[in-house]
C-alpha cells in the first residue's frame, strides 16, 4: 500500500506541492491528471525517493521512506518500477542490457533466466529484433516501450508511469493501456499513472486524482470524473480553454 500524508515540496520560494494526501491500495491503479507544471511528476519522484519532500510522509508498505534507513529504502526501491517521461534509457547500453539492468542489480536470476525474461518483456511491449540496438537507433515510441519493458522486467510490486503514452500512436497507446490493465489483473501490480490522455485514463484507472496548483482538487472513480460538477476538472477533461484554470493570458488577449 502507498500512503502519502501532508506532502509539501518547495523549490526556493516556489511551492510546487501543498499538503498532498492520497492512499493507493494494493493492486489499485490510480491516474493523476492535471495541467503541465502542476507538480504531477514531482509527486511521483517524491514517492519513489528521487526527491526529498520539504515536509510530510510517504509510506510504502508501512515504511516511511522519508525517514527510513538506507537499507530499508533500498528494500523499498526493489518494490518500485519507474517509467520515465523521456524513457531515460542508458545510451551506452543496448536495449537488451537496458532491460536486463534491473534484473542484474535487484534480483538473483542467472544469465539464462535474465535473457528469457528480457525477451518476454520486450515481446509484451511489442518490440521485436531490437535487443542488439542502442537507444539512439530507436524511434521515440519504441524507446518509450523499451523503458516500460525495463520497468516491468524485475516485476516490482508498484509501478509509476510518468506519461507512458505521450508520443505514441493511438494503437500503441491502447496497447500500453491494455498492458497496464493486464499487469494489474495478472500480477496484482499497484500503479500510479501520470497522464494527459483522458481516453487512456478512463480505461485504466480505478480512481482519478486531479492536481491543480500543487493541491489535490478531485479524487474519484472514472465514472465520478465524467459526472463531476467540479469546474476545474470539467474544464481539464473537456480540454477547454475557457474556465477557472488559468491559461496563458497572451493567447486569451490574441483571441
Amino acid at each position: 500500500m502507498i500512503k502519502v500524508q501532508g506532502l509539501c515540496k518547495q523549490f526556493g520560494l516556489k511551492r510546487v506541492l501543498r499538503d498532498v494526501n492520497l492512499e493507493v491500495k494494493d493492486g489499485e491503479t490510480i491516474v493523476i491528471i492535471g495541467q503541465s507544471g502542476t507538480g504531477k511528476s514531482i509527486l511521483l519522484k517524491n514517492i519513489v525517493g528521487l526527491i526529498k519532500p520539504t515536509s510530510g510522509s510517504i509510506f510504502i508498505d508501512n515504511v516511511d521512506i522519508t525517514k527510513c534507513s538506507k537499507t530499508e529504502l533500498r528494500e523499498s526501491q526493489k518494490k518500485m518500477g519507474y517509467v520515465f517521461q523521456e524513457s531515460a534509457l542508458f545510451d551506452s547500453l543496448t536495449i537488451e542490457e537496458n532491460v536486463a539492468f534491473g534484473l542484474r542489480t535487484l534480483t538473483d536470476l542467472d544469465e539464462d533466466e535474465i535473457k528469457k525474461r528480457v525477451m518476454q518483456c520486450l515481446d509484451m511491449v511489442g518490440l521485436k529484433n531490437v535487443e542488439g540496438l542502442k537507444p539512439s537507433e530507436l524511434s521515440g515510441g519504441m524507446k518509450k516501450r523499451a523503458g516500460l519493458a525495463r520497468a516491468i522486467a524485475y516485476q516490482p510490486k508498484n509501478i509509476f508511469y510518468d506519461e507512458p503514452t505521450t508520443g505514441l500512436d493511438p494503437i500503441m497507446t491502447d496497447v500500453i493501456s491494455d498492458l497496464i490493465i493486464s499487469l494489474r489483473k495478472h500480477l496484482k501490480i499497484t500503479s500510479i499513472v501520470v497522464t494527459h490522455d483522458m481516453k487512456s485514463a478512463y480505461k485504466i484507472a480505478d480512481r482519478i486524482i486531479m492536481l491543480y496548483k500543487g493541491e489535490v482538487v478531485f479524487n474519484g472513480t472514472p465514472e465520478e470524473t465524467r459526472r463531476t460538477d467540479n469546474a476545474v476538472v470539467r474544464q481539464f477533461v473537456e480540454g477547454s480553454s475557457r474556465g477557472p484554470i488559468e491559461t496563458d493570458r497572451t493567447f486569451r488577449e490574441m483571441e
Binding site: 528521487l50 526501491q77 520515465f84 542508458f90 545510451d91 534491473g102 542489480t105
Partner: peptide
C-alpha cells in the same frame, strides 16, 4: 559531458530507481 547528459536526460534518476 557524459555524466551531464545522463543527468539532464534523467538517466541518473533511472539508475537510482534500478537500485544503483
Amino acid at each position: 559531458a557524459e555524466i551531464g547528459t545522463m543527468k539532464v536526460t534523467e538517466q541518473l534518476d533511472a539508475l537510482y530507481t534500478l537500485g544503483t
